[in-house]
Amino acid sequence: MTAVTLSPALAPARRLGVTAGLRHTFTLAWRSLVQIKHNPMELLDLSIQPVMFVLLFTYVFGTAIAGSSGEYLTFMLPGIMVQNALFATMTTGFGLNNDLTKGVFDRLRALPIARWAPLAGRILADTVKQAWSIALLLGVGSILGFRVGNGVLGVVGAFALLLAFTLAASWISVLVGVLVSEPDKVQIFGFMVIFPLTFTSNIFVPTDRMPGWLQNWVEVNPVTVVADALRGLLVGGPVAGPVLQTLLWGAGIAVVFAPLAVRGLKRRV
């Protein structure tokens, strides 16, 4: 009994190069971004929500908390960038879970493409969306009176640091995405965890205005750490310490959650 004979021209390649994998990643990232065209709600999520938060906090709480809306904006904008970025990481798990439950993931896995490309493509696309949101927040902040203290270098540094941190944090989202049974549960997880986590940090209210027992937690909350690093880079103040701590937190999160997420994904499919 012989196998099907293939003419040499048709003989399929044994394995894939890294370049091909990167090409697949870019193609799949395109796919995630072109979805926005058909689902404008997603763009609203990425744009309206952060802007609305900035406006509400600046004008409703600003005067009460900091005495003036301008001062409060300077204090709060770096923090709201962190909060928004963490919420936005949920897009990754949501989209992944959607692909898993709808069967898109299986179609992709049956194609001769790099095994890591579907996940990498999604994360790449979500990183582009993150960059858009960060730029939008800085833009709206500037219009409302936020002044950058450390020049272009500070802005670039803040951008890079926040993107690096959200890249690490998105592994948590990937893990949630592979564990839950339907996309909406990723959103629920986001609200249940990210809301309390970000509000019990110093992003909206200075630590010393909170009850003592809460202050201990706020000090160690990674959201506080990242917000401090962004304040240092964008506005001024200590930079090296918070930036280093942020990178350590990011590395720690990635080291713990990336293997769990990848293992979960392999078990799921």
Partner: peptide, 16 residues
């Protein structure tokens, strides 16, 4: 990887 270059798959779970 070679098999994947030869096959097409249509099913309720392999979706567009």
């Amino acid at each position: 990887h070679r098999v994947r270059q030869l096959i097409g798959l249509t099913g309720q779970y392999a979706s567009v």
